[in-house]
């Protein structure tokens, strides 16, 4: 019993799992205004994501796709996902992402950023 009481706080103190991939940060940052047009967009999640069913889509203000197709998950850092971008003109851009985690749950979200030289 005493051992169980010691073990429980240890378990509580350890890193718990969110079990759903949540966006932790992005580059360009969420809602950022950047002066230099980025050539890639990278998203970092709180846990590894599955490349096969995860995706990023970037659109300009007119709704045209400005990304270079399929997003790629970095094998060295499976919690990050990256997509190449076409040359971006100054303007407003909309990002939509979808991430599948190892527990088979899908999360999705969206954010925007601006390019203003």
């Amino acid at each position: 019993m005493r051992r169980a009481l010691i073990l429980l706080p240890a378990l509580l103190a350890c890193g718990s799992a969110s079990a759903h991939a949540m966006l932790e940060r992005a580059e360009p940052r969420v809602g950022a205004v950047v002066s230099v047009a980025p050539t890639v967009l990278t998203l970092w999640f709180n846990e590894p994501v599955e490349p096969a069913f995860s995706a990023i889509e970037v659109q300009d203000a007119a709704g045209e796709r400005v990304d270079r197709g399929k997003a790629r998950v970095d094998p060295a850092d499976p919690a990050s996902m990256q997509i190449g971008l076409k040359p971006l003109a100054p303007g407003h851009y909309h990002v939509r992402w979808r991430a599948l985690s190892a527990d088979t749950h899908t999360t999705q979200g969206a954010f925007e950023f601006d390019v203003r030289p």
Binding site: A17, S18, A19, E47, S101, A102, D103
Partner: peptide, 8 residues
Amino acid sequence: IGHVATVP
């Protein structure tokens, strides 16, 4: 195939 799979 569940939440346990994502426990570090």
